[in-house]
Design a protein around this nucleic acid. Sequence first.
DNA 1: CTTTGTGAATTCGTTCACAGCA
DNA 2: TGCTGTGAACGAATTCACAAAG
Lengths: 208, 208
Amino acid sequence: MEKVSRKTIERLIIYRKILNQLKYSEISNIYSPKLGDLAGSTAAQVRRDLMTIGYNGTPSKGYDVGDLENSIGEYLDNPQGQSVAIIGVGNLGSSLLDFCYWRYPNLSKIIAFDIDSSKVGTEINNCMVYHIDDMKKILPNENIEVAVIAVPEKEAQRTCDLLINHGIKGILNYTPVRLLVPDNIFVEELDMMIALERVSYFARVKKI
Amino acid sequence: MEKVSRKTIERLIIYRKILNQLKYSEISNIYSPKLGDLAGSTAAQVRRDLMTIGYNGTPSKGYDVGDLENSIGEYLDNPQGQSVAIIGVGNLGSSLLDFCYWRYPNLSKIIAFDIDSSKVGTEINNCMVYHIDDMKKILPNENIEVAVIAVPEKEAQRTCDLLINHGIKGILNYTPVRLLVPDNIFVEELDMMIALERVSYFARVKKI
DNA sequence: CTTTGTGAATTCGTTCACAGCA
DNA sequence: TGCTGTGAACGAATTCACAAAG
């Protein structure tokens, strides 16, 4: 991969989702000002982003919804698909599983893990729940390189270390713990209370 | 408020949390390289950020943990405190309530709303659960200007409109719906599946 | 006309590098 | 020494503005 900025990638993911929704609304083409608007961005930004992945529209028709969705997919997605492990099926893990009915083209398979024997062996929204001790076997078998940590705070770092031992390369961390990882591992921190503090500030100080 | 960038504010929130944890570890002072490290940032960035809020350390002692925590608080927090409403006590809303036992200095009071009569009237982690129809009374009464939307997708926009009618200024949106709001309202989108897609990409393409 | 694609200009954010200090 | 505070340099990201196209 060459020289596409992180910000651009993040926006492409959003564009794709919007295009996917537009497709189901039978909308076949869209102009940059409208797409920018829907994505919380600007027309110029949209055109710039699409330029970096080499996608071309036309002045008369703008961008073809389905075609652009596919092109972004080709750019972003692992052609082999990407399975994901969700560690911890408490409230948080369960709510994530609730969203999985949405068809996300890239996320081919989602597998859950927990230690609670009343959950292990059950199926939630088509996702099997396995015991954490089975990660060792299942993660490499299914070629899973992405995991969500939704375990209690105290288990966070230990779970993280375990995941990395079993070949995980990217982690979505919902616990309030800042994980220590080697720097070839990608971690996205999603501390819910920190997010609340952000909103609390910006709600008050409207000038961003 | 003058000229502090959004990025700086976001980092200050993280610094504060780290300082709070250090305080409980009986650590009384810290240098910028260490704080930068813990916050996933750099020494220069930390010094620059603290400069913008006018906080001063000393070359010999670095920054005083407790004092800096307080100064960041004075800068970020609403002196009147900030109450928060959580709309929807399903899996997602419940997991948020699970995190509330953490003492966050700014978030003085958290109130939950749902339509499920089996939940209304109960108390979860010290948060009362009210019926959504009571928002009209309670939101202005408690001076709540920040809300979390954790309702089913189909209710998201309607809930959002309702909140804005009742004086909400900032919204944390966990649903996959992109909310339409007037531009004096601050919205933070926290679509979990989008977050997963990001990690999925960056886990594979390590070069950020 | 209104749109795209894009070089150029601009704004924004980060890092450098060093004087001054304990 | 090893730190802080900060002007200056740098680099990244966004926006401008316009030629080309239907």
